[in-house]
Amino acid sequence: MSEVLVLVEHAEGAVRTITGELLTAARRLGSPAAVVVGVPGTTDSLRADLTALGAEKIYAAESDDVGKYLVTPQVAALAAAAQGASPAAILLPNTVDGKDIGGRLAVRLGSGLIADAVDLDAEGVATQSIFGGSYTVQTKVTTPAPIVLLRQNAISAEPQAGAGEVTALEFSVDPATATTVTAVHVEPAGDRPELAGAQTVVSGGRGVGSAEQFAVVEDLADALGAAVGASRAAVDSGYYPQQFQVGQTGTTVSPQLYVALGISGAIQHRAGMQTSKTIVAVNKDPDAPIFEIADFGVVGDLFDVAPKLSEEVKARKA
């Protein structure tokens, strides 16, 4: 059976959830082969998890250069693995880095690329959900070694232990195309789930009124065990950081439950959340477009409704 290469997403010595989803998709097409690109020692710390998730083979592409340069180490490692293995497909997460790595790799290998796939079948046909979920498109790549970028949280991981056989992989980064990382500033993620993969999302819009008042959104999110999101207007007004923006130019979310507080429901916001399973909204304006897609809408002041809901949720849990 042909190998299907999977780029392993990892952080702080742990495999990220999308990796399990990618390995599950890979198993439909062939033999899952995880490619670990990291500083020396990374593969050792991830091996048990990758094996449990389904990796038959694990390529260890380790170098002190990883982390110093943006994406080019991953491109070089995947290209090296692809040259040796003639893979049936190469699967990457549909993240900013995934797109950069996939784009370069597609040119280097002459492979067709499908971005933002929400499903992938055994024949290599990918499903995409476009224009904010208003169309479903099925796409297939005609070149060898198709590259597919899979949207996070679109398929569920079905762990099934593989052989987890480790092979070292040599690669080198071309300094002419390298971009150097000089500093990284990231806030600790805290206890809340990651936005893109969250089962529940509570988002606030311009109606929240200020950065301080976003505490109302956060309280409800914490009561529900949810991730916090924001509209672009809320981000532009400085109420909440950009990385939490939901919508066409922000993160696309597809949770079981989406709660919109003080969000009008502009088409560009809907584009990033309207495939949520259940949508509920609180808005003062009875004509707000968000109500057109809400399964349950409350016309009212979010500062009255959201705290009451938080209390009820906490009471039901207790």
């Binding site: 609180v282 349950f296 809408g297 409350v298 016309v299 009212g300 009255d304 409704v305 009451k308």
Partner: peptide
Amino acid sequence: QKVTDDGTGGSQLA
């Protein structure tokens, strides 16, 4: 469904 908050909006949503 769409309801207008009369003080019970939060409970109805719950």
